[in-house]
Design a protein around this nucleic acid. Structure first.
Lengths: 247, 247
DNA sequence: CGTATGGTTGACAATCCTCAATCCGGGTGG
DNA sequence: CCACCCGGATTGAGGATTGTCAACCATACG
């Protein structure tokens, strides 16, 4: 949607690193002991089956993990992009934990026990996994700071910086972002309610920092001003390098 | 403080699992390639030196990781108890990241590069590390839910449940907790300001659920009612088993 | 076109924060 | 042993931010 006529994003996907990178070699190894799945927006991925938990490696597209507690309070706890592993705790679950596809792509799935054995035997996979967990922990800490200590405007700016890095492309000075989340999902990711989020969106439009086209496209007209809107812009830029998760 | 005359906590420490558990065997291995340190409340542990980052394993006591962004907004991102590894990202730092000792004890420290090599060569250490990261990720997700979707009362209750599990002991139906945090630190952990936290403490006193004695001791007189105060009590109990982190 | 889901907006309420004054607890020194 | 002191804790009044609810609008899809 909204992206087919604008080919720039698609072409960048084609130029993204494909073979011979770490993600792909791990994916190949895992695929030999599990299966590859094409995933489509809105799908829910099983976290377990037959009392055996699953481990996913995202090779393209994007996922998020959501939880829902009493009174329908929902929170998107985490986002997963290319190269990320989803390996939830073997025993304890968050309340109403759901792994959802936010952008179509492909994942590799193996059983947890199989995965553990592979990590024990393959030093390379072990290194990749540990590095991925490292980056994941950092992003989770950043996310904690965002929802714990930033106000609405700052959270919104932080989100758009993340999205710009992961899903955006630079087009003549502006950053063109294909947003894979609904407004309500952005709200759940930023621990706001969707009414408040909508007001924040409106504010960014009014101040001419971001142009929103339809529901799934945002063009950041003034990137520097967006950066200035959050006190942790520099950390976000480091935590989300430009190459992340494209495709 | 407040603990020397009350021997119950100390004796429980002595009964805690010592030799032949996973934490200790990993600690021994790491100590052979690094060093053990006694740590005291209030100390700050170096995250790096000479452009080499450190990895810590907590063998007793407790730590927390704090970050501070503009305007003095502070957040305690994470807590580390017995068996936890502290292995921050090699390159990216949170703003004004500090690793602080909240309860005296002992840690083992090795250089990151050394640690990575050891994990590559020791399957046992690798398993322990991955399991620790697993639990850490879960707790971080729970923490995210707490500060993202719970109100003040619920956050306070959630904190006391965690503290009760980690630092508490059951004494004739009540749970006696030696709180290693200042009020202001609890506030930073729960993403509240300390004035608000103080009001929440008062409310718990008024409702006769918890008795606070001095600054570092809390007695939960009505544990069931404390559990009822947060919608994620069951997950907290699972994420923080009773044995965790004593001593 | 028409319908359904999602998004926006306004009025109002609840929650949390800010700032300032005051209080307490645990050290210190007379 | 007691008076004093200081950092931390508590409390009140008022303001800012976010949430709630309801009405309305827009977009995507059949």
């Amino acid at each position: 949607m909204a992206g087919n006529s604008d080919t720039s994003l698609v072409e960048q996907d084609r130029n993204a690193p494909k073979a011979s990178d770490q993600t792909n070699s791990s994916a190949d190894l895992l695929a030999r002991h599990g299966s590859r799945f094409l995933i489509r927006r809105g799908h829910q991925l099983a976290l377990e089956a037959e009392q055996e938990r699953y481990v996913y490696l995202v090779t393209s597209g994007a996922l998020f993990l959501q939880s829902e507690i009493a009174d329908g309070r929902r929170l998107i706890v985490n986002t997963y992009y290319r190269g990320d592993f989803v390996a939830p705790d073997a025993k304890v679950h968050l309340p109403q934990e759901r792994l959802m596809v936010m952008k179509a792509g492909e994942v590799v799935r193996v059983k947890r026990r199989t995965f553990d054995n592979l990590v024990d035997t393959s030093t390379e996979l072990g290194r990749h996994y540990r590095r991925a967990l490292q980056l994941r922990a950092l992003r989770e800490e950043v996310h904690t700071v965002v929802i714990g200590r930033l106000n609405g405007d700052e959270r919104m700016a932080s989100f758009l910086i993340e999205a710009g890095r992961v899903f955006g492309s630079e087009v003549s000075g502006a950053v063109d972002i294909e947003l894979p989340m609904l407004r309500s999902e952005m709200a759940d990711y930023l621990a706001l309610n969707s009414d408040t989020l909508s007001r924040l969106v409106t504010r960014l439009k009014t101040e001419r920092i971001v142009t929103f086209i339809g529901r799934h496209r945002a063009i950041v007209d003034n990137w520097p001003q967006l950066l200035a809107r959050t006190p942790i812009a520099d950390i976000l830029l480091q935590a989300y390098p430009q190459s992340t998760g494209r495709g």
